[in-house]
Design a binder for these strands. Sequence first.
DNA 1: GCATCACCTAGAGG
DNA 2: ACCTCTAGGTGAT
Length: 315
Amino acid sequence: MEFQLNLSKIPFNLENSLECGQVFRWKKENGWWVSVIDDKVVKLKQKNNLLNVKSSSNDTNEKYIRKYLRINDPLPDILSSINKDLIMATAVSKLNGLRLIKQSPWECLASFICATYKNIVSIKKMISNICCRLGKRIEFEGMIYYTFPEPEIVASVDKHTLENCGLGYRAKFLQETAKRIASREVALDNLEYSNYENAKAILLGNTGDGKILPGVGPKVADCVMLFSLEKLDAFPIDVWIRRTIQKYYSHLFENDTNHQISSWKDNSISATEYKTISKKMRRYFGSYAGYAQEYLFHYARKSEIVSLTSVSSNS
DNA sequence: GCATCACCTAGAGG
DNA sequence: ACCTCTAGGTGAT
């Protein structure tokens, strides 16, 4: 399967969208961005208004690609709705065309369970290891690729297999969560049809029925909802975003006597802080707060407007 | 409820 | 070659 997608008058930037930290399995090979989506190898190359697409499957049609890349999101309207201040205006002007990507919920959930307390380079390696060892093999244009393994597979392997993928203490979290997804104790795919509050309560196990997903806290839940469950108002808060907010949005918290922004410690976010920041920023940016988060996150990392002592290169 | 702290491990920096 | 520190946080106390 091979075709071109005409993007004239549709703002889209492939590189920004794939490198902003929301997806972990795309890599550049011979000028093409390559990954496996579901069970299909997909290669993408953008030249101005044209997106070249190649795939191992004939099911990878224009509709499929448009959905995955969220081409139908009204990006100009979204960006003007979140463009509320100078820092966002700068991020938008530098990253225009960055779109959220619609991932498979299970792969997204598993990825962000692995992502806790790791840098992006390490995350990519862990996920690559999981796919190599447990995924289905696909050959395309002389190269071998692997699918992301189904929850049933992850649930049933020996625990050491996951540990050997470099997951460390995350191995048991991932496997336990895989079991509960595989058994459909938690119907992950149905959460797309719940609202933000309900979906989050179910992911966090706050429904009172004891269906806990280990390794899933507020940050992981927000990432899964934003990147795979159509909750574009979700606003994940990690150390980068928190530092950016502390530096550029402290005025929003001036009247908050309970949670003075100046007292935030640099290396951790308490549950209370998470709720305070999340509520404030979701209200401030509105129904597309998740787009704002992604632009701020990528801009903060790329431009180093907030400092980290150890920043890994993105290669 | 709410704050503190340990946690697997790879990779960077000294 | 070593040591120290940190990473898209979460769970236990």
